[in-house]
Simulated scan of single mutants.
Amino acid sequence: MSIVSAAEGSKAGRNFWLGVAAYLVPTFPLGFFWHLAWFEDRYRTLAIYRADPIISLGLASMAVQALIFSWAYPRLFPVYRGSTLKAGLLYGLVMGLLSWSFTTLAVAAKHPVGSIVDYMMLETGFTFVQFLIVGPLMALAHRN
């Protein structure tokens, strides 16, 4: 292994872990406050979540997502020559739509929700804000 390839590997590793942080650092507090503080009453009315959420399982879920989303970024944008912000917003749009499909659509389809419209609005809003923040941060973490 040459010094150049070792340095590239360590940079890729650093970028990967920065990407993990770019997902986890905003997502956990946003998810916590969105679901358990700011809109707690609305979610309680929907009767979809546990009365006593298990925070550690939510954090574990986010950690798995962070690993996968950070791994995916350089594979979806291997040599993006545009602006970092533009790449991040595009990545946020793509991954946000993917996330929305299984966190909003699939949940609404499978779970008894007090109001599907209210649930869809709340979760669509959450996913939009989440990936509006995470997308650009992921692009910054992985920039060359």
Rank of each mutant, 00 (worst) to 15 (best):
S2I: 08
I3T: 15
I3G: 15
V4F: 15
V4A: 15
S5K: 15
E8S: 14
G9E: 14
G9D: 15
S10T: 14
K11N: 14
A12T: 10
A12N: 14
A12G: 10
G13C: 13
R14L: 15
N15M: 09
N15E: 11
F16R: 05
L18R: 11
G19A: 01
G19C: 04
V20H: 07
Y23E: 01
V25D: 05
V25I: 11
V25R: 06
P26H: 07
F28P: 05
P29R: 11
P29V: 04
L30D: 07
L30K: 03
G31V: 05
G31M: 03
W34Q: 02
H35C: 11
L36N: 08
A37P: 08
A37W: 02
W38C: 07
F39G: 01
F39C: 03
D41S: 15
R44S: 12
A47E: 12
A47D: 10
A47Q: 10
I48P: 00
Y49V: 09
R50N: 11
R50C: 11
A51R: 12
A51T: 10
A51K: 14
P53L: 08
I54L: 14
I55Q: 06
L57V: 09
L57K: 06
L57G: 08
L57W: 13
L59T: 03
L59A: 08
L59K: 01
A60Y: 00
M62T: 12
A63P: 04
V64F: 04
Q65P: 01
Q65W: 13
I68C: 10
S70P: 06
S70Q: 02
W71A: 09
A72P: 07
A72N: 09
L76S: 04
L76D: 04
L76N: 00
F77E: 05
P78D: 06
V79E: 13
V79S: 13
V79L: 11
S83A: 05
T84P: 08
T84R: 03
L85E: 04
K86G: 09
A87T: 07
A87Y: 02
G88W: 01
G88Y: 06
G88T: 00
L89T: 02
L90Q: 02
L90D: 00
L90M: 10
L90R: 06
Y91P: 04
G92Q: 02
L93Y: 06
L93D: 08
L93H: 00
V94H: 02
V94N: 00
G96I: 12
G96C: 06
L97R: 04
L97E: 00
L98I: 10
L98T: 09
W100E: 05
W100Q: 03
W100P: 08
S101G: 02
S101M: 08
F102D: 04
T103R: 14
T103W: 12
T103I: 09
T104F: 04
L105I: 15
A106W: 13
V107H: 00
A108K: 06
A109Y: 09
V113Y: 03
V113C: 06
G114A: 08
D118F: 07
Y119N: 03
Y119W: 05
M120Q: 12
M121H: 12
L122K: 08
E123Q: 11
T124E: 09
F126K: 04
T127I: 13
T127L: 11
F128N: 05
Q130P: 04
Q130W: 08
F131N: 04
F131W: 11
L132V: 10
L132W: 06
G135Y: 03
G135K: 02
L137R: 00
L137E: 07
L140G: 01
A141H: 01
H142K: 05
R143S: 08
